[in-house]
């Protein structure tokens, strides 16, 4: 794991009086999918929100390509090429699909080639191009949220809960879209509850508990070791 695109060193984040992150250390290697796993409430979402700057780290450092972005304002972090898909998808319901995409292209007009790629990955977005995004189904909204980060070249993708509440057919559409991104060399940090998806997509994994990373390694290693999963996440895949 030399030269990671993103590095967190001993990051502490408080929300109000609660100490949510208590010294998170993690690396996101370049050109790979890194899974951030763990039970509910261990700090996965807070980790992503701290990276993008919605919450501020009280202590520790966040390095993007070696550049310290710990106190950089959110818009500047985004313009450094960090694409963020929040847990609630962050769709602008009042705007059309088209307008959502126009906003997603921060540095200029939408690139038609990228748009073709988006439509190929998510055909419903073409159908509903001029519809208000608020009227989309849950799956279509998630497609739009991924499409938005695809609207520009990004150095790093932060995706919180790719498949939450989605039907199996749509989960496979999402997984395919992410695999495409990865094939183009994207670096992705992905929070995911669906272990099957994590297993299929992830190259590396970090497992969190209680505001810390308690295990880091290859996703394949974690996927192949049921005892380890049980110990780290208290989950049994068979159930």
């Amino acid at each position: 794991m030399s030269d990671p695109i993103l590095k967190l060193e001993g990051v502490f984040t408080d929300i109000a009086q609660y100490h949510i992150l208590q010294g998170v250390d993690l690396d996101v290697p370049r050109g790979a999918v890194t899974m951030l796993l763990g039970r509910n409430g261990v700090g996965k979402t807070t980790t992503l929100r701290t990276i993008i700057g919605h919450w501020r780290a009280r202590k520790g450092r966040i390095l993007l390509d070696g550049e310290d972005i710990t106190t950089t304002p959110t818009p500047a972090i985004a313009r450094l090429g960090v694409g963020f898909v929040p847990e609630d998808m962050g769709i602008f319901a009042d705007l059309t699909v088209e307008e959502n995409m126009i906003l997603a292209a921060v540095s200029g007009p939408l690139d038609p080639n990228r748009l073709e790629r988006v439509f190929a990955a998510f055909p419903p977005l073409k159908t509903f191009w001029r519809a208000e995004a608020g009227n989309l189904s849950g799956g279509q909204k998630q497609m739009l949220s991924i499409a938005r980060v695809m609207a520009e070249e990004r150095r790093l993708y932060l995706i919180d809960e790719l498949t939450k509440g989605l039907a199996p057919a749509i989960i496979s559409t999402m997984a395919r879209a992410l695999r495409d991104l990865k094939a183009r060399g994207a670096s992705i940090l992905l929070v995911e509850q669906n272990f099957a998806v994590a297993k299929a997509l992830g190259d590396h994994a970090h497992v969190m508990d209680d505001g810390r990373v308690i295990w880091s390694g290859a996703m394949a290693e974690l996927a192949g070791d049921a005892d380890l999963q049980e110990r780290l996440m208290g989950l049994s895949v068979e159930a």
Partner: peptide, 20 residues
């Protein structure tokens, strides 16, 4: 568009890279 989006979800507008 930024204003309308910002009325709805300012945090996300910033996460896209706009200085709200």
């Amino acid at each position: 568009l930024i204003v309308r989006a910002g009325v709805e979800n300012g945090e996300m507008v910033q996460a896209l890279g706009y200085r709200l």
